[in-house]
Write a protein that binds this DNA or RNA. Structure first.
Lengths: 202, 202
DNA sequence: GTCAGAAATAGAACACGTTCTATAAACTTC
DNA sequence: GAAGTTTATAGAACGTGTTCTATTTCTGAC
C-alpha cells in the first residue's frame, strides 16, 4: 500500500469532481463495487472485475480509489449515509435513550444482515484498513457516532453521550464481524447489543 | 482462503505434535513470525521470509499454518498467553473491579504499545480473519475475556461479568486498531478505555 | 481551431499469498 | 533392515492487488 497522491485524495472525497463525466464514472465504480460485494463478498470485489463492470480502465479505477480497501470503505460510507437519511425521515419510537438506541441499532443491523456478502465485504475492509485509509475510516466512524447520538437525544450530544456512542459503535462492529465470520448468530448479536446498551444507558 | 484439512488443524493446535523435531519447527516458525512482525509489521510477515528465517520450506510452513492469518493469530494467542501468565504471577492492585480492570488493561496495553509493529501485525490479522480461522479467533477471544473477568473477581464469573468483559474486549481491540493506524494517540486510548470501564463498572 | 496538459485506455509487468509437482528424507511396521 | 507411508524440500506456477508504459482522448486557455 503506497501513499496516495494528493490529487487522488481530492478525487476520493467525491463531491467536488470536476466534470459530470467524472461524477458518473465514480458512481459506476461504487455501484459495481456494491453489486460485486453483494454477490460474493470481499473476495469477489476484484479490482479487474470492478473496472470491467464499471466500464473503466484499471488505471482509472486506481486514480479514483487508491486501493481496494479505500474503495470498499468509501462504499460503506455511501451505504451508511443512505441508512442515516432513511433514519432521519423516520420518527424513532421509544421513551428513553435506551429504547431509541436499541431501535436504531436493531434496524440497521437487520438491514445489513439482509445482505450478508455486502456486509462481510465492508466490515472486513473497514477493520483491515491501514493508516493510509485514515480519512475514510474517520468519516465512517463519525457517521456511526452521530447515528447513535441522534438516537439518544435531539440536542447536541454531550461528551459523555459521544463516548457512549463510540463504545456502542465498537461493540456493534465487533459483533457484525463475529456474525459475518459465523462465530455468532443473529440472535447472539441482538442479545449482546441489547445487553451492551442496557449496561451503558440504563 | 480454502478450507483447511483436518490433519493440518491438528498441527495447528500445536501441543500434541508427534515429534520433538516438529515442535521445534513450529517454534522456529512462530519465533520468525514474531521477529519479522516486530521489525516491519503485517506487511513484513511475508510467507517466503518466514519460511527462510525459520529454515523450513514454504510448503512446510503451509503444512503447519494454513494461511498468513492463521499464523499471525496463533502467534497472538502465544503472546497473550505469556501476558496472562505474567499477570497471574502478579497481585493486581485495586479495591474495586473498576480499578483492577483498569490496571490490567493499562498494563497489557502499554506492553503492546512498546512493540507497535508487532501489535499492528497481530491486530490486523485478528480483525481480518475470515471464517476459516474461527477456531484461532475464538481461542484469542476467550483469552481476552478471561483476562478481564479474572481482574473483576476471583470467583467464577457471572454471565453479566462475562458480558462486560466482552464489551471491554471489543472496545479495547477497536482502540488498539485506532492507535495502530494512527487515528488515536496512546493518551486517547487510555482515556477512552478509562471512560468505558467507568461506564460499565461504576 | 490549436495546442498543452490532464485524464483515460489497454495491457504488460511485478509482488506476494497460495498451490502444485517432483524428489528426498524420515518415520513406522513387519 | 526393507517396504511403504508420511513429512520435508526446492522450486515452479498461479491468482489477484498494485504499478508502470505507451498511446489516445478529453478539456481549457489562447
Amino acid at each position: 500500500m503506497s501513499p496516495s497522491k494528493s490529487r487522488t485524495d481530492a478525487l476520493m472525497a467525491g463531491d467536488e469532481l470536476s466534470s459530470a463525466a467524472q461524477r458518473e464514472r465514480r458512481k459506476r465504480i461504487v455501484d459495481a463495487t456494491i453489486a460485486l460485494a453483494s454477490k460474493g463478498g470481499f473476495d469477489a470485489v476484484q479490482m479487474r472485475a470492478v473496472a470491467d463492470r464499471a466500464d473503466v480502465a484499471l488505471g482509472t479505477l486506481y486514480r479514483y480509489f487508491p486501493s481496494k480497501v479505500h474503495l470498499l470503505v468509501s462504499s460503506l460510507a455511501v451505504e451508511l449515509e443512505r441508512a442515516q437519511e432513511k433514519m432521519d425521515r423516520t420518527t424513532v419510537p421509544g421513551d428513553s435513550s435506551y429504547e431509541r438506541v436499541l431501535f436504531v441499532l436493531g434496524r440497521i443491523t437487520r438491514g445489513l444482515q439482509r445482505n450478508p456478502h455486502l456486509t462481510e465485504a465492508m466490515t472486513r475492509a473497514f477493520t483491515f484498513a491501514d493508516a493510509s485509509a485514515g480519512a475514510e475510516i474517520d468519516r465512517v466512524s463519525l457517521l456511526m457516532e452521530s447515528m447513535f447520538t441522534k438516537a439518544m437525544s435531539d440536542d447536541a450530544p454531550t461528551e459523555e453521550q459521544k463516548a457512549i456512542a463510540r463504545v456502542i459503535g465498537d461493540v456493534w462492529l465487533s459483533n457484525l464481524v463475529a456474525w459475518v465470520t459465523r462465530r455468532a448468530t443473529a440472535t447472539d448479536v441482538a442479545n449482546r447489543l441489547e445487553l451492551t446498551v442496557r449496561l451503558l444507558l440504563k
